[in-house]
C-alpha cells in the first residue's frame, strides 16, 4: 500500500472521497478542482479516465466522459504530477475501464505511477477473478488496487474480496449504474457491516450519494463516502454559467454537502 493510503488510518471519519473526470471541463480546471477538493476536506481523490463505453456509469458521468474526450490515462497521470507540484498531498487513484488500461499496458502504467506520484488503481469492469496477477503486481509496486463489492456479492465472495483488498474497500450502494439516487439497496447495511468485519481497511460507500442527509447517514455506518455524479454535475453547471468564479459557488456547495457546521438539517 502507498504511504499516502497508510495515512488514512489516522484521519477523522468518514473519509470524503470525491470522483472527478480528468479533462472535464479542461485539464487546467481538473488540477484546480483537485486542489480545491483537498482544501475542502477530501481525503482521497478518484481521477476518472474518459471511455467510450462506460458500462458502470450513469448519464452524468457518461456526458462528462464525452466532454473530456481526448484525455488519456497517460495525460491524466501527468496531471497528477502538476497537482503534486501545486500542493496536492492526498492519495490519488486512477479510475479507468479495463480496455484503455490494457492498451496502455501494465508496465507503462506502473512506470507512470511512479513518475507522477499516483497511489492507486480502480478498474470497475475487472472483477476479482480476472484481477489476481494485477493485484499481486500492485502490491509489489506499492500501488493500492481498489476492489469493489456490491449488494449482490455473496458473503463468501465478500470475505474473499475483503481479505485481498488494498487501500480501502469500495462498497456499491445500489444495483445499476453510478448516479444520484434517493434510496440505497436494502442489502447495503448488511454489506457494510459484513465488509467491516472482514477487513481493517476503511470501508467506503459509493454510487448514488448526493445529499447532506445521505452523507451524514452513510458516514455513521461506514468509514468513507464516495461522491461522483453530483460533484461532476455541479462543477459542469457552475463552470458553464460562470467560468471565472465557479469555484466560489462550488466551495459553498461542498460545505453544505460534507461539513457539519453548514448542515442544512
Amino acid at each position: 500500500m502507498s504511504i499516502r493510503f497508510e495515512n488514512l488510518k489516522s484521519k477523522t471519519k468518514p473519509l470524503f472521497i470525491p470522483f472527478i473526470m480528468a479533462g472535464d471541463p479542461s485539464p487546467e480546471i481538473t488540477i484546480e478542482l483537485a486542489l480545491l477538493l483537498q482544501e475542502e476536506g477530501a481525503d482521497v481523490l478518484e481521477l476518472g479516465i474518459p471511455y467510450s463505453d462506460p458500462l458502470a456509469d450513469g448519464p452524468v458521468i457518461q456526458e462528462s466522459a464525452k466532454r473530456a474526450k481526448g484525455m488519456t490515462i497517460k495525460k491524466a497521470m501527468q496531471l497528477v504530477k502538476e497537482m503534486r507540484k501545486r500542493g496536492l498531498e492526498i492519495p490519488v487513484l486512477i479510475f479507468t475501464y479495463f480496455n484503455p488500461f490494457l492498451q496502455l499496458g501494465r508496465e507503462t502504467f506502473f512506470q507512470l505511477a511512479e513518475e507522477n506520484d499516483v497511489d492507486g488503481l480502480l478498474i470497475p469492469d475487472l472483477p476479482f477473478e480476472e484481477s489476481e496477477s494485477l493485484r499481486q503486481r500492485c502490491m509489489e509496486e506499492q500501488i493500492s488496487y481498489i476492489s469493489l463489492v456490491a449488494p449482490t456479492t455473496s458473503p463468501e465472495r465478500l470475505y474473499q474480496i475483503a481479505q485481498e483488498s488494498q487501500g480501502f474497500l469500495y462498497c456499491v450502494s445500489s444495483l445499476g449504474v453510478t448516479g444520484e439516487r434517493k434510496d440505497f439497496h436494502p442489502e447495503t447495511k448488511r454489506l457494510l457491516r459484513e465488509a467491516k468485519s472482514f477487513t481493517d481497511l476503511p470501508v467506503a460507500l459509493g454510487f448514488g450519494i448526493s445529499s447532506r442527509q445521505q452523507f451524514v447517514e452513510v458516514g455513521k455506518v461506514c468509514d468513507g463516502v464516495i461522491i461522483g455524479s453530483s460533484i461532476i454535475r455541479k462543477v459542469h453547471q457552475l463552470y458553464t454559467e460562470c467560468p471565472d468564479s465557479w469555484d466560489v459557488a462550488f466551495r459553498a456547495y461542498l460545505s453544505s454537502l460534507t461539513k457539519e457546521e453548514a448542515s442544512v438539517n
Binding site: 458500462l55 458502470a56 479495463f98 470497475p124 469492469d125 475487472l126 472483477p127 476479482f128 477473478e129 480476472e130 469493489l148 463489492v149 456490491a150 449488494p151 449482490t152 456479492t153 455473496s154 465472495r157 456499491v172 444495483l175 445499476g176
Partner: peptide, 12 residues
C-alpha cells in the same frame, strides 16, 4: 472471452 463486468453482475 472471459468475464469483464462490474461486480454487481457477477452473481447473475
Amino acid at each position: 472471452g472471459g468475464r469483464y463486468v462490474p461486480e454487481t453482475l457477477m452473481f447473475a
